[in-house]
Design a protein around this nucleic acid. Structure first.
Lengths: 327, 327
DNA sequence: CTGAAAGCGCTTACAG
DNA sequence: CTGAAAGCGCTTACAG
């Protein structure tokens, strides 16, 4: 390649890297030669020499046994937005889905594969969290979505605001006794935060918070459906449900329909996530939507600004009103 | 590291690479030392020396302006299944989403970033296909999902079988005149294949095929809805619809509901894709489901078996019966 | 079975 | 502004 352009290896490198110091004429000659012989810089060598990788690893934690079709659509959206945000900042993204204990892996930095690691964990997988928490000690660049641990570098939705938004909307629609559907002691910390926001708004309105607890099930939808059935069996009592996530809300909708409870007439339902499915539920599901694009940007920024005084770690949320609360 | 274990660099390399030739005692010593100092092989250097990358690039083609939340859920599933399949075969995956002309990029092999490239394009993006088709000449390892070009190395759903399955199911449910909703002259070749399967089964049953054509719209759902409205305006005539994809079927459902046409009573509706949303549509949507896991495996295998006599390139499909055809 | 040496393809001080 | 030289951290013939 250097021969072809009639210059030295150093000059080729500088010309292609866009160094200021090179004559425009020389650069043009080098670019033409590169075009002619289809030359591209070998990034393995460049990075080995340079020391950095220009790549960011993103790990999506799944439940064991999950296949591509079972993975939470919101995880996919997060993955997409992280890749997009990384790309905007000039980084490539190495992605891997990890479910079983034998395959947990986070040593991308040590191996020279990536400059940092984004871990996306929306589902419960305790073993994975234990593994990744162990890594942290090594003083590396890692940032987490959905971390159950507050001492890790995390980015999350503004869950408290979400809880408040939901309650305020429900009350504005004329519902008088919204309850919260979810598990607040779940390792999924975000649910507890949504519950806190819910409680804030309830108390601000002079109302008593009310919790309809869910229990672990095969899927979030089943958890939601089971909890609603148990609640109805005990006589119900609330006239609206704010579910900790859309999947549970969808399950709740299912259960209410089966029991002949009219939505939104008798009971209003709102969720969180804005899954694609929310738009097609019957009735369509009112939900609090996190901003996936903002999430990707914040995660990538947090990765490289770790240790900052006041890193921006809360992804804004917004209310999407649909049929399930329209009365 | 070599010092620490008291052996040469060569021996460390061989021990860690699992070379047969190394004494178990030596290997143990090396492994212990590696553990102690937290040593990991630098893959940049290893691959530079070895010549390969152990990585596979996957490019998801999007529509310009699409954000992470807008991307087709099926594309995400395909992405997931490709990553999973690659991982099973010991490959890392480098993923990128590409929408605009300036960012098209496929030179992962030349740059030493990947040993091969999987391109996932389910949406219409002519410029992207032109770009990637241009690459092909360079005699490289690329395999395509959703390619409009038959001369590229492709993997697709068994679309003809899908068309047949849909018609056979519709007839078995007592529908007498199923039509096909979609664009058969679309660059999206797969739609035409589904139409062919539809025609095969119609003729086999002694029926005349009938096409309800769609036209490009902002989203597939809008395309489906608009086509159904136009069709109703012209007097309809069919008693069942097999839509070229779920998004269109969902749009059709929407339009039928708005016009007061009962589904599945007056008109049956079936789609293709098995989007998560299909389970939550009202009524729930009968659909032909491709097998995303199989798709990932086939794509990865095709990548490394290119040029084989009879590469397996058709992903099996299956019928998922739901409410929209249940009469 | 293990070690010394070469070299993968770059980038970057160091000279000129 | 450009070139010659060193070296990034590995793997792998080649000896022994």
């Amino acid at each position: 390649m250097a021969e072809r352009a009639g210059v030295s290896q150093s000059t080729v490198s500088r010309a292609l890297a866009g160094s200021e110091v090179i004559t425009e004429a020389t650069r043009a000659r080098v670019l033409r030669a590169a075009e002619e012989i289809g030359y591209f810089v070998d990034e393995r060598a460049a990075r080995l020499r340079r020391g950095s990788t220009g790549t960011l690893a993103v790990v999506v934690i799944c439940r064991p046994g999950e296949s591509a079709a079972d993975i939470n659509p919101f995880s996919y959206m997060l993955l997409g937005s992280v890749c997009l945000a990384a790309s905007e900042r000039g980084f490539e993204t190495l992605v891997s889905f990890q479910a079983r204990e034998e395959q947990f892996f986070g040593h991308y930095e040590e191996r020279g594969w990536a400059d940092g690691l984004v871990v996306i964990g929306t589902t419960t997988n305790r073993a994975a969290w234990d593994y990744f928490r162990g890594l942290e000690k090594a003083e590396r660049r890692v940032v987490y979505w959905g971390s159950p641990f507050d001492d890790l570098e995390w980015v999350r939705s503004d869950n408290r605001a979400a809880g408040r938004l939901a309650v305020e909307h429900l009350l504005a629609q004329g519902y008088r006794a919204p309850c919260f559907l979810g598990a607040i002691d779940s390792p999924q910390h975000q649910f507890a935060e949504r519950y806190e926001g819910y409680c804030d708004a309830m108390r601000a309105a002079g109302l008593e918070p009310c919790l309809v607890p869910t229990r672990d099930g095969a899927t979030r939808e089943e958890e939601g459906a089971a909890a609603v059935e148990a609640w109805l069996d005990q006589g119900g009592g609330a006239d609206a449900i704010f579910a900790a996530c859309d999947a549970m809300a969808l399950g709740a909708l299912e259960a209410l329909k089966q029991r002949g409870v009219a939505v939104p007439g008798e009971v209003g339902v709102a969720g969180f996530d804005d899954l694609p499915a929310a738009r097609f539920a019957q009735p369509t599901l009112t939900t609090i939507a996190p901003d996936p694009a903002a999430a990707g940007s914040l995660l990538v920024d947090a990765l490289f600004n770790a240790g900052d005084d006041a890193p921006l770690r809360r992804v804004p949320v917004s209310l999407t009103v649909r049929g399930s609360t329209a009365r």
